[in-house]
Write a protein that binds this DNA or RNA. Structure first.
Lengths: 219, 219
DNA sequence: ATATTTTTAGACAGACTTGTCCAAATCGTC
DNA sequence: GACGATTTGGACAAGTCTGTCTAAAAATAT
């Protein structure tokens, strides 16, 4: 029995590898061309796989969309909570640490390939397949907001912030962080880290002017 | 010669009426189905017009998209500047007037049919027809931001606000106003006026906590 | 080395679109 | 009522796409 000889895995290794490669290619094509414009031959070619294999794995085109959305949603959710774990719970320099956190959030979640894909596909097909995205709707942003709100509430309790409604504050934090990026993201531009840092800096400065406890002397 | 007997107009009245009805129907269908999924027969039916008439007026499908985007962009731009004219230049109760302004902005521009259409179509096709939306990119948001920034700068000069960079403040104002609406808008829900008012209230409160000069006593 | 499963390439029918063409019908004007 | 322009409905070719089927090839397990 050699090293990689676990039957259950070795049998399905290429199988699941192809599965992944199909989902990745499908995500890319769906995102680029939209659901109606997406071509299964193109997806197969881009995945390095024959068309029949795509049908073997996921059956329908609609079914493929479901699988893709499920996959990307999971991946993105994992990224979000991984990043949320780096929230500055015991800050030394709150402003700098919030800026760094915002940059991480944008780089790892909102502005990467998965984030762009979900945003685009949700807006395009959300109303056509409501049941598909209903899960995301509450498992995605709602949980993110709640988790972020809890972090801000703790900071407020520890005397760093002065917040009436942590949920509103969390939503506004995210809105401010994205304020300067909306335009670029809509057009699918890739954002330089410098842009992300600038946007985060502006956002955190305003956020702390509104919610920070240690008011700066207004010269 | 009767009243409405200007030949140039009466001849083209039904003509241009059909033109408009086609563009409206096309906007609706493009928005619902995406460009690739949009069906010219459906557009014609929804416009109450034969397919041939659609081709007579706009030629290509791509050409039709161009016409639709141009029309909607113009209409939206007009709405934005109309609403910008109601900005509280000489406020009595700044907070209340900014809330009312924000509600107007959302109702007349960002959240109506045209706003939703442009957002959706831009995200879906923006990268495929960059030249089409390049104009909008600077004529739309950039001009809006600049105009709004000028208003805020004037309020700051008059002693109502304390703003370092009016451009950033304007973008952040709009971002805050949309903070609570993102989710609903992505799914195409229609927003009640109550929701709009609540969102605007939250936004303006935070905005004024950050930029208002008369700091509230922090009990 | 052989048996079993997966993958492949290609053909295929069925359906759907786009864009054009044309003769008949409709509309507004004189 | 007759004329000219626009509109209509339907037919049409050419193309694309989905989803299925088949037999051959490749990969994997025994």
């Amino acid at each position: 029995m050699t090293l990689a000889d676990t039957p259950d895995i070795s049998v399905h290794r290429s199988h699941s590898a192809k599965r992944h490669s199909i989902i990745d290619a499908a995500a890319s094509v769906f995102c680029r061309e939209g659901f109606a414009g997406a071509n299964i031959d193109l997806i197969a070619a881009e995945a390095g796989v024959s068309r029949q294999t795509v049908y073997n794995h996921h059956g329908d085109k609609e079914n493929l969309l479901v699988a893709v959305v499920r996959e990307i949603t999971e991946r993105m959710s994992a990224g979000v909570f991984e990043t949320l774990a780096t929230f500055p719970d015991k800050p030394v320099d709150l402003e700098a640490e919030l800026v760094a956190f915002a940059v991480r959030l944008n780089q790892n979640c909102m502005c990467n390939r998965d984030g762009k894909f979900l945003r685009k596909l949700l807006q395009a097909e959300g109303s056509r397949y409501p049941e598909l995205f209903a899960g995301w709707r509450e498992h995605g942003p709602a949980k993110t907001w709640a988790a972020l709100a809890a972090r801000f509430a703790r900071l407020a309790h520890a005397g760093w912030l002065e917040i009436d409604d942590p949920d509103v504050a969390a939503r506004q934090f995210l809105a401010l962080v994205n304020a300067d990026l909306q335009m670029a993201m809509i057009f699918g531009d890739t954002l330089s880290e410098e842009q992300l840092r600038q946007a985060a800096t502006n956002a955190v400065r305003t956020f702390l002017r509104a919610f920070g406890k240690a008011r700066r002397n207004t010269t």
